[in-house]
Simulated scan of single mutants.
Amino acid sequence: MTTHFQLRRILLATLAASAMGAGAAYAEVKARVGHAMPESHPQAIAMNKFAELASTYTNGNVKVQAYHSAVLGSDEKQLQAVQAGTQDLYIGTLAPLSSRVKEVQVWDLPFMFRNSAEVYAVLDGASSKKIFEKIAPANLVGLTWTGMGFRNLSNSKHRVAKPEDVSGLKIRVMTNPVALDTWKTLGANATPMAFAEVFPALEIKALDGQENPLQHMWANKMQEVQKYITITNHVYTPSALVASKKFWDSLSPADKAGVQKAATEAGLLQRKLLDEGDSLAVENFKKAGVTVDSMPAAELARMQDKVKPVLAKFSPQIGDEFVKGFFAEIEQARKAQ
């Protein structure tokens, strides 16, 4: 006959087993985060920090391994893998999604921002949150927006001191219609190309130049294949840290909160490192023999005027109301400075 004491022991054992089973549902999760930048770039440093913080804030439940230098594939391939659930996390441009999420293209419109403070205000604002909402049907969970930097022009032919100097240069541009139209409007022979192909194309003179943030250029050794850099700050390129829905759904609520906290802090670190590093990048380029010039303000204003038709053309395609709200956030940030 089963005694009261035995029944109590059986009940306690059952409860303990149930608790262990519940814990097993959220067992240690191993995740991969990938991106295109080499280990010396602020984004790589930030992702290493993200991996460390994710483990700390989840009490060791989530172990993230960072993969740098596009070892998991190009931005486009990694985004596809995250959508499919075969890669857990990705940080970089969302430009490959622009055909299905038109709002992503707003970041490619030229000459919107005067400084990084305006950029960060918009990255933390309603428009950027709206883009994360828009990518959710693609099985992506937006964790945080961070920076990559203002884009500037480099080439191997000659100094660019006025808009006319761009004419005829064969410039690699991002594979999106806004960038393509912007540089065609300026008279360049604009050539869309995956970034992984850019260095060898510059090396064999199949391209004259490219445009990217300064620290991006330095980390990818543009000083070896480019002689001139012109500071234009024509477009700001942000980075988004996104998770696959499959990975996100495998986490407990507490672990989701921990990973989100780690993502936010790592994104802020990346912004800080970028803000601190541009002047050093200029010094490094000059020491390497690259001529670095800032385009004169009057000539930059002429360049801005030349590309106004690009804004007029693409605003309706992106969504007039969305673009209007985006510019309103910029103006609000500008007034607050």
Rank of each mutant, 00 (worst) to 15 (best):
Q6K: 14
L7Q: 10
R8K: 13
R9E: 00
A16Q: 06
A19D: 09
A24Q: 07
A24G: 09
Y26A: 09
K30W: 13
A31R: 00
R32A: 06
M37G: 03
H41S: 01
A44P: 11
A51S: 00
L53S: 08
A54W: 08
S55I: 11
T56C: 10
A66M: 05
S69Y: 12
A70H: 01
S74Q: 08
Q80K: 15
A81I: 08
T86C: 13
Y90C: 00
Y90Q: 02
Y90K: 02
I91C: 03
A95Y: 01
P96S: 09
S99N: 07
E103S: 11
V104N: 14
P110E: 10
P110R: 05
P110S: 04
N115K: 00
A117P: 01
Y120C: 15
V122L: 05
L123W: 13
S128E: 15
K129T: 11
I131M: 13
E133R: 14
P137L: 10
P137I: 12
G142H: 12
T144I: 15
T144V: 15
T146F: 03
G149S: 05
N155K: 09
K157D: 01
P163C: 10
I171H: 03
T175Y: 12
P177D: 01
V178I: 06
A179F: 15
L180S: 12
D181S: 14
D181T: 07
G187E: 08
N189H: 09
A190L: 14
A194V: 12
F199Y: 05
P200E: 15
E203C: 07
A206W: 12
A206Y: 05
D208I: 12
Q210D: 13
E211F: 03
P213D: 04
Q215F: 08
H216T: 08
M222P: 00
Q226V: 00
I229R: 00
T230P: 03
I231M: 04
Y236G: 02
T237R: 13
L241E: 04
W248F: 12
L251D: 00
D255F: 02
A257Y: 15
Q260D: 04
K261Q: 09
A266I: 10
K272W: 15
L274I: 13
D275I: 06
E276T: 07
D278M: 11
N284H: 08
V292L: 01
D293A: 08
P296Y: 11
K306S: 00
K308F: 15
S315H: 04
S315W: 05
Q317R: 07
Q317G: 01
I318K: 10
G325Q: 02
A328Q: 02
E331Y: 07
Q332H: 09
